[in-house]
Every structure is written in structure tokens, then in C-alpha cells.
């Protein structure tokens, strides 16, 4: 396994910061969106879209591309920002998010937005769909790897575990699930609403290799993504411990910031914090 350079780590961390600012700005401008879960995935998205994924913005439907499904589709502000910076569409388009006739829907829409692999918004679908992509890759002798980014609250849904069973049965080593384990869902803390623990054991029991990381530590993210590619006998679940609302002190760990836009004053404060001022 290669050791990632300090330079790369710094660049990706800068990008994560940029994605946070962009996502929050989009949510603020629209007056709608999901700040908490958009902020918690910034490093993961930066690592995937600006280093790890084999994708080509010039050929969004390139057959050999790695597949990425944002199963927790409500966090799409961060995904849209990443796609724009990666060149899938002009950055200015981010300002149209959610307008009538915009290519950027309230939740990801594969038919409207280049780079969006699958339409999502209602939770739970990603893993089973990912399993289908991986089974197809096997049949077609293709080398793409499939990544599915899940919410922890999302992991309460039964269908998620149906997908996990399939991935386990077929030993889909070309599938990596990443769980954004921020322990907050819409109505409150995950451990109160519907506990998931023992969570690592659950994934293991479903025949996944499990890697636990700090989901805001870029090196750990990159290493875990690399490690998953070295596991050839089973699918991998990366359990990324994260903070909902990461980077904005008054949003951190607060369910009340799950699906609410900041006002002007709050946005100014949040932006200053994100810029480290």
C-alpha cells in the first residue's frame, strides 16, 4: 500500500473545506437543504472524487468508471459541489440548485445531473443497487469498483440489510460500503431513536470486512479505501466515525440542523468558522 504524501492530504483537506463552504452556501441561498449530513461527509467525498475514484468528467458514462452512489441523497449539496469542482458541470450552476428547470434537483437525479450514478432521496436503496452493479461487473468481466455512502440512520432500514445479505452471499469484494456514522438522524441521536450497536459486529455477521476510521481524518480515509481494494474475498464496510454538522460549532451534533437552512447571520458565522477566522 502506498503512503499518501503530505501534499495530497493537504490538498484534499482544502477541498473538503471548500466543499463545506459551497454546500452551506448553496443551502443558505436556497433556504433549504440538509447542512448536518452534508458537512459530515466532506472529507469522504473529497477523498473519493478528487483522488480515489476512477472517473472522467469528460465521459460521465464511461463504462469502466468506478460507481459511486450517494445513498443518503439528502446530503447532495456536497456531492453537487464536488461534481462541479471536478468539472462535470459549471460551478455557476450550483446557484440554480432546486430552481424549476434546474439540472440540480433537491435530491440526486441520475437523468438530470452528469456524474450522479443513481437517483436517491428515500433512504436504504444504495447497498442493494450497489450489489447489482457488482454482480453485473463480475458477469461482464469489468473492473470497476462500487462505493455506496450510507447514513447511520439509514442503516435502520430493513432493505439495507437485504442488500448486505446479497453482497455477503456473493462475496462482492468489488463493493465498498461507507457508513457516515455521525450518530444523529432527523429526530435525534441514533443511539436513542433506534440503536445500531453492536454495529461493527453486525457488518461482520453479514460477511463484510470492517474497517473503522475517523471519517474526518484524510489519511485514514485514503488508507481505508486502499485497504478495501486489497480485500479479495468479501465486501468491505468502512465505518467512518464522523460529526454531524462538522466544522460549524453551533451545528455540530445537533439534530435541529439536520434539515434547516441557516439565516444570513448564521451563515456568516458558519463561513467564518469554516475559513478558520
Amino acid at each position: 500500500m502506498v503512503s499518501h504524501s503530505e501534499k495530497l492530504i493537504n490538498e484534499l483537506n482544502d477541498m473538503a473545506k471548500q466543499l463545506r463552504i459551497d454546500a452551506l452556501e448553496m443551502i443558505h441561498r436556497r433556504g433549504q437543504g440538509h447542512p448536518g449530513g452534508s458537512l459530515s461527509i466532506a472529507e469522504i467525498i473529497a477523498a473519493l472524487f478528487f483522488h480515489h475514484l476512477r472517473i472522467d468528467p469528460m465521459r460521465p458514462d464511461w463504462e469502466e468508471r468506478d460507481r459511486f452512489i450517494l445513498s443518503k441523497g439528502h446530503a447532495c449539496a456536497t456531492l453537487y459541489a464536488a461534481l462541479a469542482h471536478r468539472g462535470f458541470f459549471p460551478i455557476e450552476e450550483l446557484t440554480n440548485w432546486g430552481h424549476l428547470n434546474s439540472r440540480l434537483q433537491g435530491h440526486p437525479d441520475r437523468l438530470k445531473t452528469a456524474g450522479v450514478e443513481m437517483t436517491t432521496g428515500f433512504l436504504g436503496h444504495g447497498l442493494a443497487i450497489g450489489a447489482g452493479l457488482c454482480l453485473a461487473a463480475r458477469l461482464k468481466k469489468m473492473n470497476y469498483h462500487t462505493y455506496v455512502l450510507l447514513g447511520d440512520g439509514e442503516c435502520q432500514s430493513g432493505i439495507l440489510w437485504e442488500g448486505a445479505l446479497t453482497a455477503g452471499k456473493y462475496r462482492l469484494s468489488n463493493l465498498t460500503a461507507i457508513v457516515d456514522y455521525n450518530d444523529v438522524q432527523l429526530d435525534g441521536p441514533v443511539h436513542e431513536i433506534m440503536p445500531l450497536e453492536p454495529f461493527v459486529e453486525k457488518w461482520k455477521a453479514f460477511s463484510f470486512a470492517v474497517i473503522e476510521i475517523n471519517g474526518h481524518n484524510m489519511r485514514e480515509i485514503l488508507d481505508s479505501l486502499d485497504m478495501a481494494l486489497q480485500i479479495h474475498t468479501k465486501p468491505t464496510a468502512i465505518i467512518a466515525h464522523t460529526t454531524k454538522g462538522k466544522g460549524v460549532s453551533f451545528m455540530e451534533n445537533k439534530a435541529s440542523w439536520h434539515g434547516r437552512a441557516p439565516n444570513d447571520e448564521q451563515f456568516a458565522r458558519a463561513k467564518a468558522e469554516l475559513l478558520g477566522r
Binding site: 433512504l123 436504504g124 440512520g153 439509514e154 435502520q156 432500514s157 430493513g158 432493505i159 438522524q185 432527523l186 429526530d187 435525534g188 441514533v190 431513536i193 433506534m194 439534530a255 434539515g259
Partner: peptide
Amino acid sequence: VADVSSSVMTNYFAEKFPERFFNLGIQEAG
């Protein structure tokens, strides 16, 4: 309710009758 109590406003009920309120998380079918 399936983790949308504050959205569909069953939270008034939850406050008044916590013992008769069941937030089951994101599992609509269950």
C-alpha cells in the same frame, strides 16, 4: 413514526404521551 416526528408534527403527541409514542427510526415497512 419513522424518524420524521418533527416533520409531521407528532412531536406534540410525543411530549404529552411519551409512553404511547414509538419512534422506530428509518424502517417504514417494519
